[in-house]
Amino acid sequence: MRTAATIFLISVFATALFADYTAPYPFAAQFRELPNAAASGSHLLGTDALGRDRLSRLLYGARLSMLLAPAAALGSVLLALGFALLAAMGGPWCERLILAAADLFLSLPLFFLLLAARALLPLHTTAETAAIVMFGLLAGLGWAGPARVMVGAAKQFSRSDFVLFAKTCGHGRIRIALVHIMPNILPVAKAQFLIATPSYLLAEASLGLLGLGIPEPVPSWGSLLRELESVSAITANPWILTPALCLFLVVAGFHMAVSADKTAV
C-alpha cells in the first residue's frame, strides 16, 4: 500500500510540476465563446464561467498546492527540528521554555489566525505573494504540534547511553545534537512531515472555499473548489467535482503513506 501511495503521489507531483507541458492550455487563457462549456474533446473537464479550460487550471492548481503545501510542511518540521535540538542542547529550562511556547501556539486557533492574517493582505496583493504568505503562515504557525513530539524524542535520545558516552568523550553540545541526536529523530520528523502536508492541503482548500485562498487568476485546488458552492452547477456539470476528487485522492495517499510508515516503525 505504501509503495502504491508513494507512486501515486510522485506521479501527481510530476504531472503538476510539469504543468507547462501536461496542461493543454495556459491557466488564464480564455475561450470567450465557450463559457461554462460541457466536457468535450477539446476541453476534457469543460470550461469555467470565464471560459477557461478546467483541466489546465486543475493541473496548474496542483502545481501550486503540491509544491507549496509540502514546502510549508517542511518549514514547520525544520522549525520543530531546530527547537527539538535546541531543547536537547539547552537543558531543562530551555526545554520548558520551548514546550511553553509550543503550548501557547497550540492554544491559539490556527485556522482563525490564518483566516485573519490572510484577510488582512492588501487588496492589490498579487496571487503569488498571497500564496507565499499563506503557506508561510502555515509553516510559521504549525510548528508547535511536530515540536512537541520531536522535543520528546530528542529528550529521550539525549538521555541514552550513546549520548552519555559521547559526552564522556568530550564532544560538544552542538556536535552531540547534530551527529548523535538529529539522525535518530529524522524518522519522527519524516512522519510529522507526512502528517502536516495533507493537513496544510486541506487548510488551503477550506480557505479557498471561504474565498480567502489564492486570489484569481492563479488557480489552486482550494480556489477551484469555489465552484462547488452552487448545487445547480454540480448537478449540471458533475465534472466540476474533479478538483475535490483529486484533493481527496492525494490526501488519502498521504494518509496511506503515514499509516504504512507507522506500521513499519
Binding site: 477550506s206 472555499l209 482550494g222 473548489l225 462547488l228
Partner: peptide, 12 residues
C-alpha cells in the same frame, strides 16, 4: 473518507 475531505467542503 471523511478525514480526507476539507472541513469547508463537508460543511457545504
Amino acid at each position: 473518507v471523511l478525514l480526507c475531505i476539507p472541513v469547508a467542503l463537508l460543511a457545504v
